[in-house]
């Protein structure tokens, strides 16, 4: 069976700035692919292009056998790609249950069905006790959980997670890793951006490294940790 997501040589320019300049990534079904790279490498732009939030300047994105580059954001979501944001984008004046219901309505147009689905999803991510709290009153860690729940409620085939681990305490991070494993257990494919490589090492099946808008590495976590080009991108040129 072919890969679920196949991004080939993606380009994205903002004026004269090349945010992406040869980004390629393959995500196998049911696996967790980690996307890492130094600050400003273009990780968030890559997510924006895959999810349809912005149009790539050139290149190809094949999802589940069909080309999706340039399709409107909401339509890509309906095809089965859900995402979270690096800077959380909650519905501030909605409760947790209401916000997740908005996600669930995509596959369940009847409100009662959607609310039931949302309630399940909230329990699944561990936000049960906060279901009637307003989005704006949550802690950062809970806001990130809320975003994951909202995305999961759309019953996606592919989940794009943008730095969901950043800023979490060690205990919270551990809980998050457990949650990720459960999501994978449901057969959902994950592509996950992290700034810190260590976070991904134990859970990722595959690592893609982005530097200056370009894919410079694609392979196992173990190989990534020993690849000179990856180390250089992170640490600067080797001292001789």
């Amino acid at each position: 069976m072919s890969a679920l997501l196949d991004v080939e040589n993606l380009q994205k320019r903002f004026g004269s700035l090349r945010a992406l300049d040869g980004f390629s990534l393959t995500a196998e079904r049911g696996k967790l692919t980690g996307l890492i790279g130094p600050n400003g490498a273009g990780k968030t732009t890559a997510f924006a292009c895959i999810s349809g939030a912005t149009k790539p300047t050139a290149g190809k994105i094949v999802f589940d056998g069909g080309e999706i580059e340039g399709k409107p954001y909401h339509r890509v979501a309906r095809l089965g790609i859900a995402r979270t944001y690096q800077v959380v984008q909650t519905f501030a004046e909605m409760t947790v249950l209401e916000a997740v219901t908005v996600g669930a309505l995509m596959r369940h147009p009847r409100l009662s069905d959607a609310r039931a689905k949302a309630a399940d999803t909230i329990e699944f991510v561990g936000l049960g006790p906060k279901r009637d709290t307003l989005g704006k009153s949550l802690t950062i860690a809970d806001k990130k959980r809320l975003e994951v729940a909202r995305a999961l409620a759309t019953e996606p085939a592919l989940l794009l997670l943008d730095e969901v681990m950043a800023g979490l305490t060690p205990a919270e991070a551990q809980a998050a890793v457990a949650l990720l494993r459960e999501i994978l257990g449901r057969g959902i494919t994950i592509v996950m951006v992290e700034h810190v490589m260590e976070v991904l090492m134990p859970i990722a099946d595959h690592i893609v490294v982005l530097s200056a808008g370009k894919t410079i590495f694609s392979g196992t976590p173990h190989a990534a940790a020993n690849d000179p080009a990856v180390l250089e991108a992170y640490l600067g040129p080797p001292i001789t």
């Binding site: 939030a53 909401h74 909650t90 519905f91 909605m94 908005v102 309505l105 959607a114 759309t154």
Partner: peptide
């Protein structure tokens, strides 16, 4: 559904689009 969607659009149009609105 429409009521939920309209409120979501008002709160954050971009996030609403990310869940298919």
């Amino acid at each position: 559904r429409m009521g939920y969607y309209l409120r979501a659009i008002r709160a954050n149009q971009d996030a609403a689009a990310s869940v298919g609105v």
